[in-house]
């Protein structure tokens, strides 16, 4: 008896079972990696509401309606930037590519944050009040 024979002796059920388990495990691995991955997602807020959650790993371009008009945001190579904004001073665009933290355009009231933007979520040493 040789290897060739053994492989030929395997039943249809054998092969289906093995194939099924392999595909099943692979899809679970991919699925769980998506869910549990700590790779930050991009959270986009407009006028105080969360409007998009996007992956930093997928190149993307989105338009967000803000208070003044449309802000365009680009995600590329795990970085994010503002491409266009209706605000006057364009500070948000000038900030360029960012891979952490957040970009905020106050005039158009659009916030793009890498990782979740906890309410007032900046680590601070003290509060002035």
């Amino acid at each position: 008896m040789n290897l060739h024979q053994i492989v030929r002796n395997t039943t249809k059920a054998d092969r289906i079972l093995i194939l099924f388990l392999i595909i099943f495990c692979f899809s679970l691995i991919i699925f769980f990696n998506r869910i549990f991955s700590n790779k930050p997602s991009i959270h986009i807020y407009s006028e105080g509401k969360e409007v998009y959650i996007l992956s930093l790993n997928e190149n993307n371009q989105v338009n967000i309606k803000g208070r003044l008009g449309i802000t365009t945001i680009e995600i590329k190579d795990k970085k994010v930037r503002f491409i266009s904004s209706p605000c006057k001073n364009k500070l948000c665009i000038k900030q360029g590519w960012k891979d952490s933290g957040s970009i905020i355009c106050l005039p158009n009231n659009v916030i793009v944050s890498i990782g979740e933007y906890r309410k007032g979520g900046i680590e601070i040493d003290a509060i002035t009040k």
Binding site: Y45, E47, I104, L106, I111, S113
Partner: peptide, 11 residues
């Protein structure tokens, strides 16, 4: 560095 709380206010 502004937080999302500032969206209540107009700049």
């Amino acid at each position: 560095e502004f937080t999302s709380n500032c969206s209540k206010y107009n700049k």
